[in-house]
Design a protein around this nucleic acid. Sequence first.
DNA 1: AAATCAGGGAATGTATACAATAAAAAGGGA
DNA 2: TCCCTTTTTATTGTATACATTCCCTGATTT
Lengths: 240, 240
Amino acid sequence: MIKMEKYMENYGSGKEDMDKYSLRGKVFNKIREDILAGNYKEKDELKEAAISKALGVSRTPVREALRQLELEGLISIIPNKGAYVNGITAEDIYDIYVIRSYLEGLCAKWACKRISAEQIEELEEIIYLSEFHIKKEHWEQIYELDNRFHFYLYEACGSKILEHILSDYHHYVERVRKNTLSSRERALTANTEHKAILDAVIHKDEEKAEKLANEHIFRSLANIKDQGLEKLMEKHEDRK
Amino acid sequence: MIKMEKYMENYGSGKEDMDKYSLRGKVFNKIREDILAGNYKEKDELKEAAISKALGVSRTPVREALRQLELEGLISIIPNKGAYVNGITAEDIYDIYVIRSYLEGLCAKWACKRISAEQIEELEEIIYLSEFHIKKEHWEQIYELDNRFHFYLYEACGSKILEHILSDYHHYVERVRKNTLSSRERALTANTEHKAILDAVIHKDEEKAEKLANEHIFRSLANIKDQGLEKLMEKHEDRK
DNA sequence: AAATCAGGGAATGTATACAATAAAAAGGGA
DNA sequence: TCCCTTTTTATTGTATACATTCCCTGATTT
C-alpha cells in the first residue's frame, strides 16, 4: 500500500523512482549510472553472468535491464553474441543540449496554452525556494529545485511525448548539470531565467517563452563549455 | 553465419530488423504493431501469461518485450501489478510531427556540415529512383524510398543522438505515413521537397536546409489533417 | 450495517535449468 | 605449413519452477 502511494506520486516523472524497488530497476540504474559516469569504455562487453555475479542476482533481471539499456541507446546488443557499451561522448552532451534548446523552447510555448493554475503556483514556489537556497549556497537543494522546475514545466506542456523525451535527455546530462550549478553566479542566473520563462508563460506570450527557454539551455551549454566539457565528464570517474 | 551477415547489413537501421530472429523481437514487434495499429484500447491490461500462451512462447521473452515497450512509452508497468497500454492518440501523432519538424530541420542543418560524398550520392539515387516509381505508382517502393531518404539524412547529420530519436519517431508514425503517401500528388510533392532539401544541404546552405526540412514535415502534417484526422486534431486543441 | 482482517487465488518478480548459437580450439589431410 | 572440418567451450536465448506481492472475497467483530 505504501509502496503504491509512493509510486503514484512519482508517476511519469522518470523511471528511476519507479524501479527503485525491483532488482531489475536496481541493475538498470547501476549499469546506466556506470555508463553515464564513464566507468565503462566504448565497446566494452557486458557479460550477463559477470554482472549478475557481481550484483548478487540471477541473470533474469540483468537481461531485462540490458534490453532496456539497448533501447535507450546506451548499449548495442548483437543477438547471440553480446552487449556492447556505446558510451557517452562530449559530442553527445553537446548534441543533447542543442536538441534540448529547441525542445525546451517548444515545451515553454505549449505550456503557455495548457498550463494550469496549480502548476503555475508550483513553479512559482520552486523559484521562490530557490532564491533562499542560493543565498545559503545549499547546492544539493538548488540542484533538486532546478530539476523540479524543468520537470514541472515538461508536465505543463501537456504533451506526453515531449515530456517523455525531455525527461530522458535531462537525466542523460545529469552528471554534467550537477557540476555546472555549483557556482552561486550560475545558480542565480539560472533562477532569474526560470523566472522570466515562467513570466512569459503566465502571460501566454508564446514567442517570448519559446525564445527565453531556448536561450536558457544555450546559456547552460555556454556555461558548460567555459568549464571544459571534457573535464566535467571525467570528474566522477574515480568514485567508488 | 548467414544470420550474422544479415544482421550486420541492417546494423543501426532500426530495431525491427535486428530483432527479427529472436522470440523476444517477434513478441516486441507484435505487441508494438498491435498498439500502433490501435488493436488495444487505452488502459488495457497486458497479462504476460495470456500473451505468451497466445504466441506460443514462454513468459521470459514476453517480459523482456514488455520492459522495452515501457521504455518506449507505449505501455506503463506498475510494479507487481501489471502492464497497461498507453495507446497512441491523435494528439501524440500531432505532437510527434511538430517535434519532428524542429528536429528534422536541425538534422538537415547539421548534415550541411557533416554529410559525405557517398551519402550525397546515395540520397540522389533515392530521389532519382523515386521519380520512376511515382510514375508507375508503385506505392510500396515509394514508401520504402521515402523511409530510406529520411534515415540516410538522419545518418548524415553525424549525431548518434539525433539519429536515434528521429528514427524512433519515424517508426512511431509509420502507420500514418503509409497512408498519406498513397496519392500520386503527395508522393510527387514529397519527392520534390526532398530534392530541394538535398540541394540546400549540398550547397551547405544551413539556414535554407533547416527551413525546408522544417516545412517538409509541416506539410506532411497538413496532408494528414486533410486526410481525415482533422476531426481528432481539433479535439487536441481544446484539451486541458 | 460498516469496518477490519485473514486467507486463497492470480499475477508478477526472480532464480535456475536446459537448448541453441557462435567463437575458439583441436584435429586431419593436402 | 596451410586450410578445412570437427569438437569443444563459453555465452546467449528460452522455458520452467519457485517466491513474492497484490487484490478480492468473505467471515468476524463492533
